[in-house]
Amino acid sequence: MHPSAQIVFLERVGLYKAPPVSDIKPHQIPPGYEYIELLTGGRVSFETEHGLREFGCGTLFWHIPGDYTIHKNNPDAPYRCLTILFRIGEASTRRVPRWTIWERESEVLEFSEEILHSYSDSSLDREILCSYAYTRLFWQAYSQVHRKPDPALPLPLRKMILMIDQNFAANLSISDIAAHARVSIPHLHALCRLHLQQSPHQHLMTRRLQEARHLLLSSEAPIKKIYGDCGFMNVECFCRSFRKRFGVSPGEYRRQHGNYLFQS
């Protein structure tokens, strides 16, 4: 189901500025609603699975029925947040985490101003605004989670995934990865087969090819530079791996996606 399919109405948009006190009266979200608090400034403490943690600008709190709004304020830096109340047409379930981080502060502030301004403009279609606001927030929460390893994975695999994500362009060997994950090479292979259905080398190649595809679409860098930036040892290996994965050469992929869709 599309994330916005269950929305009935954009009930209310506001900008809350907490007073300089430690505790704010919390409110429980009633059935039939979802409530968003997007911090645009200040600091707030929130109880996570790892204990009480302080959050700042860019933290996105997504409340469903039964949840309570944030309320542990920092009186030395009172929090400010964009608040959005959605009325939901069916039973609400948690599809994104209770809190995520929108990393680019400038985007947070621009989005907040855009929503407040648009909500104030009665000439704009409220249904379209509702769909846009919900989908944009949902995408931020969803994509932030999927950029990080699944916390349910064994710790060695999470270490491997982070190492590959941050160092895919380096000359990584499987022994380097296993040493970083603090397991033997056979054990790393077994964990990958069980949880990822691929070998460590396949995961590394997937990440390199993902970056190559991004660079082919977003830059004009020559292929002889892209293969090195993505960790491939030579252009022949890169082109062979790319064609095997995507069915076309890197040059053909760039031509296909660089043209207008209906251009012959």
Rank of each mutant, 00 (worst) to 15 (best):
H71M: 11
H203F: 15
V21I: 08
Q166N: 14
Q140T: 03
G41N: 01
R94Q: 03
V248C: 02
P78D: 00
G51I: 01
G32W: 15
W62E: 01
A170P: 09
G66T: 03
V13T: 00
Y253T: 09
I84G: 05
L15M: 11
C81F: 10
P151W: 09
L217E: 04
H195I: 01
L124Y: 10
L209M: 02
L261P: 08
P156W: 13
I164W: 11
M1I: 13
R80K: 05
H50E: 03
I164M: 13
V108K: 09
C130Y: 04
F262D: 00
E105I: 06
T100E: 02
H146I: 01
L162R: 01
F46P: 02
V96R: 01
D229R: 10
V96P: 10
G41L: 01
R43S: 14
L188D: 09
S264Q: 13
Y68C: 12
H50T: 03
V21D: 06
S249P: 06
T100Q: 01
V8T: 12
A141T: 12
A91P: 14
V8W: 09
S264G: 14
Y33K: 01
A169V: 04
K148C: 07
E37I: 10
Q197G: 13
V96T: 08
G258K: 01
T93K: 12
H214D: 07
